Simulated assay, not measured.
Amino acid sequence: MFKLKSTFFIRYSYRHLSTKSYYLANLKSKNLLTITGKDSIDFLQGLITNDVRYKSNDNHSNSTSCIYSFILNNTGRIIADLFVHRLITKQNDYENNDAILLLEVDQQISSILIKLLKRYKIKSKVSIKQSDTNDWHCYSLFPTVIENNLNEIIQINNNESNTIFVNDPRNNYFGYKILTKIQSNNELLSFLNEMNPTWKIIDIDENRYRSFRYQYGIGEGSLDFPIETSLPFDANGDILNGISFQKGCYIGQELTARTYHTGVIRKRIMPIKIIDPLVESNEMLPLQNVIDSDGKNVGRFRSNYGDQGLAVLKFDSISSDSRLKLSKTGHRIRTWRPFWWPESIIEQQMKLESS
């Protein structure tokens, strides 16, 4: 039913493939905003932290039609994190400014973002709208076992299959991003099985994806990054390919660039596990501080799903054996460094802990 044709922008390889297991989650918490028009690239380029024009050739993401990025306010705080998908057609390519951009955003703040984008539109020749929920659907295809499981570099972006399929641009361990016009999960599973028969794919709900993210310290959306409370470094934007330090000006750049060039980042979002009291899978704990055994504030709790959660924590105030607890609810928690953090970040943390 779903024939993969090589007539336009399909790149993948079956060499050295082995059977791998993945979860497929329909991300119903996401909305897509569409930006089209003569000035679409220039318009977005001045608003987000990453470079819309950048073509990645490294092994970390190797994705040319999807980037991860942030929209900041004037003081450099995160308004939203987002994925920017560039839809490739026979009428537009990477050399043209006239592009179809699909912004994958948290549905809780999609209306806020539309108003914000229209406010900055001024005389730019762009059209900004929210995609119909029956048009494109957002999915994540992520590994059942992430450690030592680098994913094959695959990219599909064509109108014939009505599907955009790319490696997650944040990190090649995280699986794949999918935008599709295919209407049912079963049809999408058939498409994916035809694309790569070696994969074993298990259809699950979005909560499993959230649990996966929390286990590995991956924040996403307004629940993990409340509007205008976090810096992009708090969100690990620098090590998740979410910030370009070579592009031109964008809103909030001054503080971001200054923080980067000073080389001192003392807090980052990290995974936590709630030890006791036990929490139910549907029990959401409130935003609150994280304190150590002396009652000193060492971070800020963000969100949880069951006993997995995220908190922004200070490197120089904690270690893996620190006795941490939530200030309001009294829950004891523990934290650890995600395995995917680059060595440079781990070395910086160790220096801060020992200073």
Results as ranks from 00 to 15, higher is better:
Lys3Gly: 02
Ser140Tyr: 06
Glu343Met: 12
Arg302Val: 10
Tyr173Gln: 01
Gln253Thr: 08
Leu326His: 01
Glu220Lys: 00
Ser110Phe: 00
Phe70Ile: 07
Ile201Met: 06
Asn96Gln: 03
Pro226Tyr: 10
Phe225Asp: 03
Glu104Met: 09
Tyr139Val: 05
Ile67Arg: 04
Val290Trp: 12
Phe43Leu: 02
Ile251Tyr: 04
Thr133Tyr: 04
Gln349Cys: 11
Ile100Asn: 02
Thr335Phe: 05
Lys55Leu: 14
Pro232Ser: 13
Lys121Trp: 03
Ile345Arg: 02
Gly217Gln: 02
Ile164Val: 14
Leu313Pro: 04
Gly252Asp: 12
Phe315Gln: 01
Ser56Arg: 11
Asn59His: 10
Gly219Ser: 11
Asp81Pro: 06
Phe43Arg: 06
Ile204Val: 15
Thr180Gln: 04
Leu33Tyr: 00
Cys138Ala: 15
Asn74Ala: 13
Asp307Ser: 14
Lys118Met: 15
Ala25Cys: 02
Asn59Tyr: 11
Lys325Val: 04
Thr335Met: 12
Asp98Cys: 03
Ile146Asn: 08
Met1Ser: 05
Val279Ser: 07
Ser110Arg: 14
Phe8Asn: 08
Asn162Pro: 00
Lys273Glu: 15
Gly175Ala: 03
Arg208Ile: 11
Arg119Ala: 05
Tyr12Leu: 14
Leu72Glu: 05
Asn162Ala: 07
Arg268Pro: 05
Phe165Leu: 09
Ile218Glu: 01
Lys351Asn: 12
Ala99Met: 08
Asn57Gln: 05
Asn57Arg: 10
Ser131Asp: 12
Lys38Arg: 14
Ile114Leu: 15
Tyr54Trp: 08
Tyr209Ser: 09
Cys249Ser: 09
Gly309Asn: 11
Thr229Cys: 09
Leu287Gly: 09
Tyr94Arg: 10
Ile182Arg: 12
Asp294Tyr: 11
Leu72Ala: 12
Tyr216Trp: 12
Glu95Trp: 01
Leu310Trp: 02
Gly175His: 02
Asn207His: 00
Phe2Tyr: 15
Val145Thr: 05
Asn304Thr: 06
Ala257Pro: 06
Ala25His: 06
Glu206Pro: 07
Ser69Glu: 01
Glu283Pro: 00
Asn207Leu: 14
Asp276Trp: 01
Ile227Tyr: 03
Lys90His: 13
Lys177Asp: 14
Lys200Leu: 03
Asp81Asn: 04
Glu147Ala: 13
Ser21Cys: 06
Leu103Arg: 06
Asn185Cys: 13
Asp58Ile: 07
Ser222Met: 08
Ile218Asp: 01
Ser211Tyr: 01
Gln108Val: 04
Ser230Asp: 14
Ile202Asn: 09
Asp81Glu: 08
Gln215Ala: 13
Ala257Tyr: 01
Ala25Gly: 07
Gly237Cys: 06
Val166Trp: 00
Ser127Gly: 09
Ile243Gln: 03
